[in-house]
């Protein structure tokens, strides 16, 4: 274990209306075993001891599954390590890469307005799911779990798509601020399962329409989303969404 010194440039913004600015903060003596968020904890405790307002950031589970955390670190969503959320990113990764200066910013997207510092409003994601990201089955209506077999391939692929944690890294790293990977993942998860077929056509129409209403940009296949997704969701979920969408429109919605 060793300790490293870093220079941070952290985005500070008091409220949604504030223009915001970068603050330079020296983070000295940080353990390489600490996670990126634990580094922020240490910095925040020092700020508090100086009577200053700590850096606001969203976080909760700190094991890469809740999707709360997420910031741009030197221009990359969740930082330099593939397949890793900011909470699971450890400081040794900066040390081995020889990085001593970090520019830390919130997600930047029209659909994700900044609330304070690194905290953004991602409720647009919830509204897209509300528009149709589900299978309508009331409590109590279900048949026996083994009544309908599901091909293992389909189940595995559906699971892969369903591992999306809704963190918003895909939107933040897309030059257009598109939510296509997020929406495609849900379309793929539910569309691959026999249980999801009844609402398949209406689901894609409703979710895509809502996505457009929420001021997300269009997908132009840059692939930045796939490269940055901490859960390894693949671009083909977008192809699947587009295919379902075309079929649904052609069938008259």
């Amino acid at each position: 274990m060793k300790n490293i010194d870093l220079t941070l440039h952290v985005w500070r913004q008091e409220n949604p209306k504030d223009t915001g600015r970068f603050d330079q903060i020296e983070a000295k003596g940080i353990s390489t075993h600490a996670s990126f968020l634990e580094m922020l904890d240490v910095v925040n405790d020092r700020l508090l001891a100086q009577g200053k307002r700590p850096i606001a950031f969203d976080h909760d589970c700190r094991e890469g599954i809740c999707g709360s955390c997420g910031v741009m670190i030197n221009g990359e969503a969740h930082g330099p390590v593939r397949g890793t959320t900011a909470c699971q990113l450890h400081m040794r990764e900066f040390d081995t890469r020889g990085i001593k200066e970090l520019w830390i910013e919130p997600w930047r997207a029209k659909a994700f307005p900044v609330i304070q510092d690194l905290v953004v409003d991602r409720s647009a994601f919830d509204r897209i799911i509300q528009a149709g990201g589900y299978i309508s089955v009331k409590t109590g209506q279900a048949p026996d779990a083994n009544a309908v077999p599901v091909r293992k391939d389909d189940a595995d692929q559906a699971f892969q798509a369903a591992t999306c944690i809704g963190c918003g890294a895909c939107v933040a790293s897309c030059p257009n601020g598109s939510a296509a990977l997020f929406v495609g993942a849900k379309i793929t998860h539910l569309g691959l399962l026999p249980q999801g077929q009844t609402e398949r056509a209406s689901r894609v129409l409703n979710m895509v329409t809502k996505m457009d209403d929420e001021s997300f940009g269009a997908c132009t296949s840059h692939g930045e989303c796939e490269a940055t997704c901490p859960k390894g969701i693949k671009l083909d979920v977008i192809a699947r969404m587009n295919g379902d969408y075309r079929r649904s429109v052609a069938a008259g919605g």
Partner: peptide, 9 residues
Amino acid sequence: DQAVAQGVP
């Protein structure tokens, strides 16, 4: 049963 019907993979 309920979870499978909801699409839990």
